[in-house]
Amino acid sequence: MAEKNAYISASCVISNNTVYKNKQVVFENKGAVLPDFLTSVYQHFAWKYPKYYKMDNLSKLGWAAAEILLQGSDIEKYPPEDVGLILSNANASLDTDTRYFETTKDIASPALFVYTLPNITTGEICIRHKFKGENAFFVFEKFDPGFLHQYVNNLLNNDTLQACICGWVDVLQEDYKVLLVLVESNGNAGNTAERFTKENIENLYSLHNG
């Protein structure tokens, strides 16, 4: 299996009420509680996707980050089967699970129930961008760049995928953090692209801790 030169073509971080694209601040709304912040992100970027409002916070974070990550990319050049999505977090869908559990004391909410799995987030992103490649949502105690690098590199090296969005989408109440990177096999080796390495993923994750 030939080792390919995989590159990080783009990155998006959402942390501490700030959105970063390729390490640059593209939006911030300090002081807002998470639901209001997520609404302000939607309004700021003037998206037209009413389904967003129905998503839980985990899916909103993942969907918004993917939207910003892929803005200006030429991801559509790949066949849908060749674009994958590998996400991870620490709290699975616990944020929504607890909200849903509260509703079961009266009348259980179907709209909340459908978000009581973390991989619904991957589904929302795949539906939006019509991705049909390998996708998975892993739950770890903490961010594991080594696992992400190894897993995604394997998918690229064995030609399962040509491109992959991978990273971390985590939320529990007001505590949240998102890092998504777009990785392309034999990708853009231009001046702005970084090699897809464990260290570079870790650096992106640590860069905007706040």
Binding site: K54, D106, I107, S109, P110, A111, V114
Partner: peptide
């Protein structure tokens, strides 16, 4: 899912 929520609305 909206249909189910409408049923919940009628009940609530």
């Amino acid at each position: 899912i909206d249909a189910l929520e409408l049923i919940v609305l009628l009940q609530q």
